[in-house]
Design a protein around this nucleic acid. Structure first.
Lengths: 259, 259
DNA sequence: CAGTGGTCTAGACCACTCA
DNA sequence: GAGTGGTCTAGACCACTGT
């Protein structure tokens, strides 16, 4: 680590750059402990704050995680859950009898758990109402909130909105348990076979509520998917807003090009 | 702002929470200037560092941006570019004569610019080779790097890999200019009509190189899309890795459910 | 020019982890 | 108990912005 007097970078950046380089070249591998802030400060002749800032830079980049009282460590990248477009396939549903999510997690050798934490009747938010084609005078929908876990770690939340006119009188409006074949089997029973999906995808940093609920470390964004289920008449019958930890989830779509 | 003696939050969090609340309730609207660090420090009776840390928290959440020497401001959310699955449609391509990207940006009233910054022959990286179905003994591909701008702001980079066996002898291997109808028209000329696409989507924080190249502010993640073009025989003929600023780009897919 | 953010120093107390 | 990160204070110099 030669001292370049012509180095324009501030000390905290320089320390961060050095550590990043050492992570990339394998000096510190995934899970390894990085030098403590006090060690770094001594080594670089800076204040402890400056070394701490360097570590913070790496945390924001998603390269390191800190454990209070224990040290800072190179982040180990967990296997990504790949949520594919085929997760909505009817044959997959019927052969496994599992919900799309359970099928995907099980396929990866992890233990899935889904918890429906609330079912209530509300007015749909603006963007949801628009995608469901609801008039302003009847935005009444069933709101179902689901939490998804893999090996008991929370990995995503999904909030589903179903027009009251469709859900009224079925288990969709009342019961956390969807029965065999899960959600889309019930829609099929009600005359709405899932025929097309629209998925609008964006990414952003999590809100403090999401950080708390999904236990999201620093430097990890969320993927937000606004999903619309469409039946054989081209009519939307369900909208779900998914929010998922971007370090645990990836999306994998395979689709035909349509003219 | 009543002082709760039982407030367990550290001062920096408390200031950040207060500001976040005021941004949410409209006290500070998009583009408004937030109080200076020195003002906040005085107001809360803390050190300037603590106020600065509070502003940093909001920046990491993507809620605020700082301009050196001028102040910190509530981030104004730019209109999202929605890159849809229909961007690959042949009819769209033929009616507009524009590349997918140009068509999409123009539709939004912005001025598109695409720059091909390099064309070279290389060996494909592991994940690309796998998706192209290349043997280990012939990974030779053409690598084309494209930068995409909207109103002269860089919004995404795309690196396309084409098997040498396909590109050899065509403009794909040599020329930045793709001619009328652009990339996929040339593949069609070569007997590879685009029939299906696979898109693998993830999100993460940008690397320092990406921050520099795409001019990405703090608190903004990137969307990474690994795109595979597949012809009417089901054979992949092209892979592109897109990296895009998540605050400028969203993805919008509409696809049939296949059994 | 005054005001602003960017970053640093030097020291401090706390809460936590690990052997 | 020794070591660690989390966070704070109080002060400082610099580079940049706007008028």
């Amino acid at each position: 680590m030669p001292r370049e007097p012509s180095d324009k970078r501030p000390p905290s950046r320089r320390i961060a750059d050095d550590l990043r380089e050492q992570i990339k070249n394998g000096t510190y591998g995934p899970g390894d402990k990085l030098p403590s802030e006090r060690k770094l400060a001594a080594q670089y002749g800076s204040a402890r704050n400056t070394a701490a800032e360097a570590i913070d830079i790496l945390r924001r980049e998603g390269l390191a995680v800190a454990k209070h009282g224990a040290g800072a460590f190179v982040r180990l990248k967990p296997a990504l859950l790949r949520l594919g477009s085929n997760r909505y396939s009817r044959t997959l549903r019927e052969t496994t009898g599992l919900s799309p999510y359970r099928a995907e997690v099980t396929k990866q050798g992890r233990t899935p758990r889904v918890a429906c934490t609330s079912i209530e009747r509300v007015d749909a938010p603006e963007d949801v109402a628009q995608r469901l084609g609801l008039n302003d005078d009847d935005r009444s929908v069933v709101r179902r909130e689901n939490w998804y876990f893999a090996d008991d770690e929370p990995v995503q939340v999904g909030v589903t909105f179903i027009p009251w006119a469709i859900a009224d009188g079925s288990v969709l409006a009342t019961s956390a348990n969807m029965g065999k074949g899960s959600l889309y089997a019930r829609f099929e029973d009600l005359g709405h076979p899932l025929t097309r999906i629209r998925e609008e995808i964006s990414a952003r940093m999590p809100t403090p509520e999401e950080v708390a609920g999904l236990v999201i470390p620093d430097g990890v964004p969320v993927l937000e998917v606004l999903h619309t289920g469409i039946d054989d008449n081209g009519d939307p019958f369900e909208v779900t807003r998914f929010v998922m930890r971007a370090d645990f989830n990836a999306l994998d779509y395979n689709m035909p090009i349509e003219d």
